[in-house]
């Protein structure tokens, strides 16, 4: 199980990477941490002509506060960096919790946010987090720089709106509710989730003023359960609206049957994960 032959180019800045991507018209792949790409190469599921190494580009590794309270996290920031980042831990505590579910230590030490987003695996944590956090993804291509909203970014399983010549520069996170819930269930520690849900809640005067619910592993892309979010606003979390949110999550998801779980079981789990995440977030919001 050895990778097929390819050329290798180490880019020293994003522009070089974009130029190289453009020159190879779809036959080049970017590699940063390589934690999703390398298994595919080893299995020879991909046979690129050129591998463009962006792992040494310093500008992709920033974690900084941008304008209007946004945080900008470079595409080359690793899962591990998020786990140990205090500033992000304070502003988006859900990130840290979610990162502990990303595979295993050695994978988190290499894998990057940009890689995870570009790979677009609907069972992975970052695509769901991006959607949940209303993130914008900053990309650079030959036609220049653009921002893509997370809800427009994920088009299907392993399919994003990135063009062949585009590279992710950063993910921009606007301020978000701090109270969070995050649950996923997997066959073993670190495995891709059978189903998972993330919840963010903002409360005012003891009532939910903003609710966000997103699902992972339950369809071709991560899923926001907008219906349920709207219905929770202005209320306490109670057994009725909790049950309604669970039902909305089950209705919103379109999971596949695979070796590890049937679609029917995953739908059931969508409700369970949503309910548990709501409970956790509500518990935090009112304490």
């Amino acid at each position: 199980m050895k990778p097929p032959p390819f050329e290798y180019f180490r880019a020293s800045n994003p522009e070089e990477a974009v130029a190289a991507l453009g020159a190879h018209g779809g036959n080049a792949k970017l590699i940063a941490g390589g934690q999703s790409l390398m298994p595919m190469l080893n299995f020879r599921l991909l046979e690129p002509e050129l591998l463009i190494d962006i792992s040494k580009i310093a500008s992709l590794k920033r974690i900084e506060k941008g304008s209007s309270g946004r945080w900008v996290i470079g595409a080359g920031v690793r899962h591990r960096d998020i786990l140990v980042s205090e500033v992000l831990g304070n502003s988006y505590p859900i990130l840290r919790a979610a990162m502990t579910h990303v595979a295993h230590v050695a994978i988190r030490n290499r894998g990057t946010i940009g890689g995870s987003l570009a790979h677009g695996d609907p069972a992975a944590e970052w695509p769901m987090l991006a959607l949940l956090l209303d993130a914008e993804i900053e990309v650079l291509g030959r036609s220049g720089q653009r921002m893509i909203e997370a809800k427009d970014f994920f088009l299907g399983a392993l399919h994003t709106s990135l063009s062949e010549d585009e590279i992710i520069l950063a993910i921009h996170l606007p301020p978000a509710p701090v109270a969070w819930g995050f649950f996923e269930t997997a066959r073993r520690a670190g495995d891709f989730a059978l189903a998972g849900a993330g919840v963010l809640l903002e409360t005012q005067n003891g009532k939910i003023s903003e609710a966000r619910i997103a699902l992972l592993g339950l369809g071709e892309t991560p899923i926001r359960v907008y219906d349920a979010e709207a219905k929770l606003e202005g209320e306490n979390l109670n057994s009725t609206n909790r049950a309604a949110a669970m039902e909305a999550a089950k209705a919103a998801c379109q999971p596949m049957t695979d070796l590890h779980a049937s679609a029917e079981f995953r739908v059931h789990l969508a409700g369970i994960m949503t309910g548990r995440s709501l409970d956790a977030a509500w518990g935090q919001a009112i304490c």
């Binding site: 290798y8 030490n109 290499r110």
Partner: peptide
């Protein structure tokens, strides 16, 4: 260990 951090050497190219 790569710079003191554990990593998979099957998922890293030697050139990297």
């Amino acid at each position: 260990l790569l710079d003191g951090e554990s990593i998979r050497s099957c998922l890293l190219l030697a050139v990297q």
